[in-house]
Design a binder for these strands. Structure first.
Lengths: 342, 342
DNA sequence: ACCAGCAATCGAAACGTTTCGAGAAACGAT
DNA sequence: ATCGTTTCTCGAAACGTTTCGATTGCTGGT
C-alpha cells in the first residue's frame, strides 16, 4: 500500500539503484534521468523510510543528548535551553535528538546505559555538563562521535563546546569594582566541575588585576549542587561568618536567586545594601525583584554549535577534535548599585 | 563485527526464529530453550538493532511530540514540562520522543509536515495545546494513533488529556471571594483556545454561584497570546478603563506576571492593594515578589498520561477514544490578601 | 496401535533501502 | 577503425530483524 522506491522506479522506468542515487544526490546521474525520477517521486509523493535507510546505510539520523540526573534537576532551565538549541539545529540538518539522563554514578551496566546506545540508534552523542568518565569511555568504545557541552574531560579526548567562564566572571567582578565594591564574596559549589572552577578563577584574576587580594574567607564553595537552596545556605554562611561584604557574585543564577531570598529575609536591600550578580541569564532573572544583573550565556547557541560539530564529524568522518569557546557578555540590570560609604 | 541475532542462534544452537521468539517474549517456547537462548544473549552481550526491528516489524518505538511555534515561544515553561513528562514516561515504555514544532498556519505541504511523519518514523503522535485541524486530519489519514494534551478537537475525534480548567478557575475565584473581593477582573487571551474559554467559564460560574453578576467590563481577552507582555497590556487596559477592581485572575502565570509588573510600575502594592492569582504553577511563581498564588497543574503528569494512553492504543490496537481530565489544585502563596475597605 | 491435535522449533520470505561491481554506451586519441 | 577511458545505468546482494507456514515430535483419547 505505501509507496516505495520500487513504485518510483517502475513509474519512472528506471532501476531501483538509480532512484536511490537520485534520492541521495549522488554524482553520475544524467540530468534527464534525474528529472524523470524526481518527477515520479513528486507524483507519487514518495518519501523513503527512515528505518529502511537506516538498516541499509547504518545511519540512523538520530543524535543522543545525555545529561546527568542531578544537573537536570538543579539547573534544568539552563540545560533545557541547550537541549532546545540542539533540537532546532538538528532539524536543520535532518537529525532528531533523543534525550536521556543517566545517574551521575554511571556504571557500565545494561540497566543504566541509555537504550539508544545499546540499540545503536544514534549516529553521535552530545553530552552536557559534567558527565561520568566511565560513560565517556563507554561511548568512546562504541566509536561514536562525541561532543561535550560545558565540560571537557582530560581522560577522554573529545570535541568540546565551552563557555568563556573565566572571562565572564571577570566581567562581573570588574563591573562591581567599577561601582566601588571591594569586599566581594563568591558563592559557588563543587569545584570538581571545571566550569565552576573557572568561574572562581576568573573571580580571583579580576581581583588580582586590580591589586586586591582575594580573601578566602569570602569564598563559599561547599555546596554539593547549584540550586537556589544551596545559594540560600551559602549566603547564610557568608552572613554568619561575620565577614564584611558589599557584593556577591554567584556561580550561577539559581544560586544568586537563593542568596537574594536569604538577603531579603534578613531585610537587606538589594542593590542598595548589597549588590549581586548571577551567571547564565536564565529567564527567571527578568522576574526577580530587582531584576538580576548577570552574565549572559547563549545557551541555545551552545547546543546548536554542538550539533554542527557532530554533524560535521559524522559526514566527513574526520577525527579532528577541536574546542570552541563561546563568548559571554555582561547583562546589566537592577541588582548592582554603587557601594555606600557609611 | 557487531553481534547479531545470527551469532546468538549459532552460539545457542538454535534457529534465528527461536531467538527472535525469545527476544520478543512470545509464547510457545520451552523453558529449556528460553534459558539457553538467554544465556547466549547475555554471554554475547547482544542487543537487537532498533533499525532492523523497525524494518521488519513496522514499529519504530518512537513517538512524535508536536506543538505550534507560538505556543512554544509564549508558554515555553509550561509545554517544556509536559514534554519532559512524555520523555520520562516514554523511557519506561521503551519509547523515545521526537520533538518538533509546526507553524500554527499549518498546511499540508512537505516543507512543513514534520519529517518524522513523512519518513514514517513514529508509532504515534502526541500534540500539545491548540493545534491546526489540518494537521490533525493529516495525521489521522496516516492512521497513526493520536493523543491530544490540553486541547480537544471537535473535528477529529481523538483521545485527549485535559486540565480541569473550569474547576481550577473556580477555585481561584472562590479563594478571592473568601477574602472579600467582589470586583475581580479576568485577563486572558484568544478565546478560540478551549482551555482559555473554560477558564473564563469557570470564572463566570464561580461568580454566579455567589450571586455576583459577571461584569463584562472586567473581562479582558483581546490579547492574541498568553505571554507576560500581553498580561502587562491587559492590566494596562484594565486600569485605563477606569473600572474599579480589587483583584485579578489571569488565564495563566505568564500573564499574571506581566500584570504584576504593570501594577508595580503604577505603585500598586501586591497583595495589599490588588490581589492576583495565576494559573499553571510554573517555576517562576516562586521567584516573583510576592510569590504568586496560582492553580497548580501537574504538567509532567499530563505528558505521562498521554504517553500511557498512546502506548496502550499502539499495543492493543484498540480504537477506543477516551478523554481524561487531570485535577488541579489551588496553591496558596503570597499574592492574595483580604480586600481593604477604604 | 492409531490418529487428531497441539506445542515447540525451524526455514524462508519479507521489510525498503543502499551499495558494489559489472556492463553498456559514448567519447577521444591514435 | 581500434582501443582505452569515462560516464551512466542496472542487477543483485546485503543490512538484521520479524513472521508465517511447514515440520516434527508428543500427548492422550479411542
Amino acid at each position: 500500500m505505501p509507496v516505495t522506491i520500487k513504485d518510483v522506479a517502475r513509474n519512472a522506468g528506471v532501476s531501483l539503484s538509480t532512484v536511490s542515487l537520485v534520492i541521495n544526490n549522488k554524482a553520475n546521474v544524467s540530468p534527464a534521468m534525474r528529472a524523470k525520477v524526481e518527477r515520479a517521486i513528486h507524483d507519487l509523493n514518495f518519501h523513503p523510510r527512515r528505518n529502511a535507510r537506516g538498516l541499509a546505510s547504518k545511519k540512523t539520523h538520530n543524535l543522543g543528548f545525555i545529561l546527568t540526573d542531578n544537573h537536570f534537576s538543579f539547573t534544568e532551565p539552563f540545560y533545557t535551553k541547550v537541549f532546545l538549541g540542539t533540537e532546532f539545529e538538528g532539524r536543520k540538518h535532518n537529525y532528531y535528538i533523543l534525550l536521556t539522563t543517566v545517574p551521575k554514578t554511571f556504571k557500565d551496566d545494561d540497566s543504566v546505559v541509555p537504550r539508544f546506545l545499546l540499540e545503536k540508534n544514534v549516529d553521535g552523542v552530545i553530552l552536557a555538563g559534567k558527565v561520568p568518565v566511565k560513560l565517556l569511555e563507554y561511548i568512546h568504545k562504541l566509536k561514536l562521535p562525541i561532543v561535550l557541552v560545558d565540560y571537557c574531560s582530560g581522560r577522554v579526548k573529545t570535541s568540546c563546546v565551552l563557555i568563556d567562564n573565566n572571562q565572564g566572571m571577570q566581567l562581573a567582578v570588574k563591573h562591581l569594582l567599577e561601582h566601588g565594591h571591594r569586599q566581594i564574596a563568591f558563592i559557588g559549589a563543587d569545584l570538581q566541575h571545571p566550569s565552576i572552577f573557572e568561574r572562581l578563577a576568573g573571580y580571583k584574576t579580576a581581583l588580582q588585576e586590580n591589586q586586591i587580594a582575594a580573601d578566602e574567607n569570602l569564598i563559599f564553595c561547599s555546596a554539593p549542587d547549584l540550586g537556589p537552596d544551596e545559594g540560600y545556605k551559602a549566603a547564610q554562611e557568608l552572613e554568619n561568618s561575620g565577614q564584611k561584604f558589599t557584593a556577591i557574585v554567584a556561580a550561577n543564577d539559581a544560586m544568586a536567586i537563593g542568596a537574594m531570598r536569604f538577603l531579603k529575609e534578613k531585610e537587606y536591600k538589594i542593590p542598595s545594601d548589597i549588590s549581586i550578580i548571577g551567571f547564565d541569564d536564565v529567564e527567571i532573572c527578568l522576574q526577580t525583584e530587582p531584576r538580576l544583573t548577570t552574565i549572559r550565556v547563549l545557551k541555545e547557541e551552545l547546543g546548536a554549535i554542538a550539533v554542527r560539530r557532530i554533524v560535521e564529524t559524522i559526514n566527513e568522518g574526520t577525527k579532528i577534535i577541536n574546542r570552541v569557546t563561546v563568548p559571554v557578555e555582561l547583562k546589566k540590570r537592577d541588582s548592582v548599585a554603587p557601594v555606600r560609604y557609611d
